[in-house]
């Protein structure tokens, strides 16, 4: 292209206009080819649909989790590229789908229930295949769920041969808030995280399980199948 441009300049200064025009046409052709080669291939749509991606992340985490964390886990452990915004209407869509054809799908992404009022816990996603106690959020549950998730991520990291640096970084961020799990600098040590989180988990687990079982019994007693998955309260959509 550089040569062509030089030739065009020379032809123009020498007054050979017909030649210059022909050269310009060749230059444009060359530029088009160059553009086509440089251009990135368009980003492929993900092979796995969003709900599958969320299911995968939640199965790994093993506890009701907020959208932001699900996206982070999907990105660093499965190389997924979800946006937070894709998850906002997910729970409502799942609820509509369940209401129109209950049990048509093998699993549903549903709500976690607050232990006190059995209403859907804000911002958390859970799996319908989990038992009811696992989907109850009592006062201690956010902490035990956080610790459980950290242990499960660490265990998964130990199984992987070539985990991404992002995965270690994510675990490091979690470990920072678990006493004795790491100093917050450098990659986290999964074994240390498992030990530290396990130790704190042992302190809370019994009381938390008691709360959860009690609330789960209440939920099984009072709620219908839809409310058991998506919570009771004014915010559930009526068969829209």
């Amino acid at each position: 292209m550089g040569k062509l441009r030089k030739a065009i300049r020379q032809a123009t200064t020498a007054g050979r206009h017909a030649e210059a025009r022909a050269l310009r046409a060749r230059l444009r052709e060359a530029e088009r080819q160059w553009d086509a080669e440089v251009e990135q291939p368009a980003t492929q749509p993900p092979l796995v649909p969003v709900r599958e991606q969320v299911h995968r992340a939640l199965t790994l985490l093993g506890a009701p989790t907020a959208a932001k964390m699900i996206v982070a886990v999907d990105e660093s452990f499965f190389g997924g590229q979800m946006a937070n915004t894709q998850l906002t209407s997910l729970r409502r869509d799942e609820e509509k789908s369940y209401r129109s054809a209950p049990g048509a799908r093998p699993y549903y992404l549903c709500a976690a229930l607050t232990s006190e009022l059995l209403s859907p816990a804000r911002g958390l996603l859970a799996l319908s295949t989990w038992g009811l106690p696992q989907r109850i959020i009592g006062p201690l549950s956010p902490r035990t769920d956080f610790l459980t998730s950290a242990v499960r991520l660490a265990e998964h990291l130990m199984r992987l041969d070539d985990a991404s640096p992002g995965a270690f970084r994510l675990l490091g961020q979690l470990a920072q808030n678990i006493p004795g799990a790491g100093d917050g600098f450098g990659p986290a040590d999964p074994a240390k995280v498992i030990a530290a989180a396990g130790a704190e988990l042992a302190v809370h687990q019994e009381r938390d399980q008691m709360d959860r079982r009690e609330a789960a019994a209440r939920a099984a007693d009072r709620l219908g199948p839809v409310e058991r998955l998506f919570g009771s309260g004014v915010k559930t959509v009526r068969s829209a």
Partner: peptide, 16 residues
């Protein structure tokens, strides 16, 4: 102490 770790979100009251 470690035992005190309860977290309650009061952003809504049963969806209200």
């Amino acid at each position: 102490p470690i035992e005190e770790a309860g977290y309650v979100n009061l952003e809504d009251a049963g969806g209200n």
